[in-house]
Nucleic acid binder design. Structure first.
Lengths: 102, 102
DNA sequence: ACAACATATGTCAAATTTGACATACTGTCA
DNA sequence: TGACAGTATGTCAAATTTGACATATGTTGT
């Protein structure tokens, strides 16, 4: 959603020090973050099942190791788009994709 | 998934005149496009069920009528991200979201 | 402890996506 | 016909996302 400020709160759940922001998320923000978390987790699981390193996956995706790491950590700088495309590139079928989200 | 060139092929299925590009899509590209199409369709259906105009939905999403139109047309310039966030903002539950994709 | 490998984190220029605007198109009603 | 509401399409500056790089932090075997 909008500002990059809030994004810093997303991934890990909260940040302790930053006293200024202790806003709760709207339902749709939560749902969005949860979706991303589910996909991240699935991506990591899938990669591990295939016995690949982040580096190898990065090559497959024409991306970089650091971005793969961020994907698996559900970093705020990673879009749903990238996560979905990566899973698809790993051969995840739509059916499986849907199952993992359910 | 790279170049913006291919993107032009995405939405409608193909473009007649542009003889240069007649490349077929890889399975994951197809899956990606199909996902977007499913979401677009759902977005339009949901909006209509709620008897909203694109303009009204745009206001709700803090976007613009033209972008809503592009979303519903699954324009290549629209990300999965935006589609999902819009559906969530419309109150679509994760459960429903998943069902529409299945 | 030291390598060697894997993963995490920060930064940044380049690429993509976004809202906004103008404007065109498509009905529909009088 | 013409006015109006709704939708489509093209463009563009601003915002966000991306791959790449450097570097830090594990982790495992010797």
């Amino acid at each position: 959603m909008n500002t990059a400020k809030r994004k810093r709160l997303e991934s890990k759940g909260w940040k302790v020090g930053t006293a200024e922001e202790f806003l709760s998320f709207s339902p749709e923000e939560s749902a969005y973050v949860e979706l991303k978390l589910a996909l991240s987790k699935t991506l990591q699981e899938t990669r591990r099942e295939k016995k690949m390193t982040q580096e190898q996956l990065a090559r497959l995706l024409k991306s970089s190791q650091s971005r793969v790491a961020k994907m698996e950590l559900s970093d705020p700088s990673v879009s749903l788009d990238l996560l979905v495309r990566s899973l698809l590139a790993l051969g995840t079928s739509r059916k499986n994709l849907v199952r993992m989200l359910a």
